[in-house]
Design a protein around this nucleic acid. Structure first.
Length: 158
DNA sequence: GCCAACGTTGGC
DNA sequence: GCCAACGTTGGC
């Protein structure tokens, strides 16, 4: 079982949107970055857990927990000319983009803000990509010790 | 709105 | 295969 972090802009798709979906489940579509694709296609397993992170907002941070409920499979939006995520270079016989389905687990008790996580950027979270400057990876692995630290922060005063 | 960082594209 | 130009991400 592995841990991940999934970034999303809540104006596009936020934790509340996921909770309101049928079965509280949604394909994590539209990822067009090879590193992120590889993680979904090759590494994610059913039962893996993820942090749901809100980016591009006033106070970016971790707002919830989600669960991976499928292994990787081709992203159908890449084949749909009407989709915002359409990629004519992705061939159904040789798909370029993959996704997993994720299910809502819970909101965190509070927004565990990026600014707060950055306080640990020089020590315990030194190799956590999220706290590095100008990090653009939309999906990243979370080491178990980092996962535990962050869940501990959830219980701390805001 | 600014801009740093970084991924992608395409000319050569 | 190099690398400049360009586009996008995302914090601030």
């Amino acid at each position: 079982m592995a841990y991940w972090l999934f970034k999303s802009e809540p104006d596009t798709f936020g934790i509340d949107d996921l909770r309101s979906r049928p079965k509280q489940t949604e394909p994590w579509d539209g990822v067009r970055n090879y590193q992120a694709r590889n993680m979904m296609r090759d590494q994610m397993q059913v039962g893996d857990l993820g942090f749901f992170y809100h980016s591009n907002v006033k106070e970016p941070g971790i707002v919830g927990l989600i669960e991976v409920v499928s292994v990787g499979y081709p992203d159908p939006t890449a084949f749909d000319p009407n989709s915002h995520y359409y990629d004519p270079k992705s061939d159904p016989d040789n798909p370029r983009w993959y996704l997993v389905d994720v299910r809502y687990r819970r909101h965190t008790k509070r927004n565990i803000r990026l600014a707060e996580l950055k306080q640990y950027a020089e020590d315990v979270l030194a190799d956590f990509p999220l706290v590095r400057r100008a990090n653009r990876l939309s999906i990243m692995p979370v080491m178990p010790e980092h996962w535990d630290l962050i869940l501990g922060l959830e219980e701390a005063p805001d």
